[in-house]
């Protein structure tokens, strides 16, 4: 039995994490792996933190990921990267959008949005505690490609470097799940994310 791979996706309600997890699921399924995807619904939909666990391998027991267990954390917002950082294992990969969405306690001035998130992540990467750190402003990348709502697809382009599946599988997943009307812009955004890593 090979090891189970664990991906934790964190974001903010309304950011479209559900589509991103469906796309990854499609890729994993196409390669004949067992998988479990776990989401928390309900009040989280109203602008709260949202969280998806994706686990795959030859056999998967628990549907959840605990602190120190994620191979990859994919965060669609900077503070959410910060929130879920302790869930990464030593040497795990952080993929994060540098976008900032202020939560209500920050908006009202009750709490402060941490200023040094990217600095600390870079230090952790330099010390080797993070295996890899990929940070882009996914919203900006998606906007330039023509559809800000596809920001998570840009992050998926980065994820494609971190998993064992070929690029074609991701493009096939986009074709299978994204409506015709939005397919080209999603492919463009995915490739922009993919190339952001290749070029750097």
């Amino acid at each position: 039995m090979t090891k189970t791979t664990s991906i934790l996706m964190g974001g903010v309600g309304g950011q479209g994490i559900v589509l991103a997890s469906k796309l990854i699921a499609h890729v994993i399924q196409a390669h004949g792996k067992e998988l479990k995807i776990s989401e928390i619904h309900g009040m989280a939909q109203r602008g709260g933190s949202v969280l998806t666990y994706i686990r795959f391998g030859d056999e998967v027991a628990s549907p959840i990921i605990e602190a120190g267990q994620a191979d990859i954390v994919l965060a669609s917002e900077r503070l959410e990267a910060w929130r879920w950082l302790p869930y990464l294992r030593h040497g795990g990969t952080m993929i994060c959008s540098t976008q900032i969405i202020k939560p209500m306690p920050v908006i009202t001035g009750a709490q402060k949005y941490p200023e040094n998130i990217m600095k600390v992540l870079e230090e952790l990467a330099a010390e080797g505690k993070l295996g890899a750190l990929y940070a882009i402003n996914a919203l900006e990348v998606a906007r330039q490609c023509g559809e800000p709502k596809a920001a998570n697809v840009a992050l998926l382009g980065i994820l494609a470097h971190c998993l064992e599946f070929p690029l074609e599988s991701y493009l096939a997943a986009l074709e299978a799940l994204v409506p015709e009307k939005y397919l080209d812009v999603n492919k463009k955004t995915f490739m922009a994310g993919y190339e952001a890593v290749t070029k750097s």
Binding site: Q69, P103, L124, K129
Partner: peptide, 21 residues
């Protein structure tokens, strides 16, 4: 089963909550 990633810089309590609104 696993140890948390060591990151003293990110202490508990410094992460603003994001409650539903």
């Amino acid at each position: 089963l696993a140890e948390k990633l060591e990151a003293q810089a990110r202490e508990e309590g410094t992460v603003p909550t994001r409650p539903p609104v």
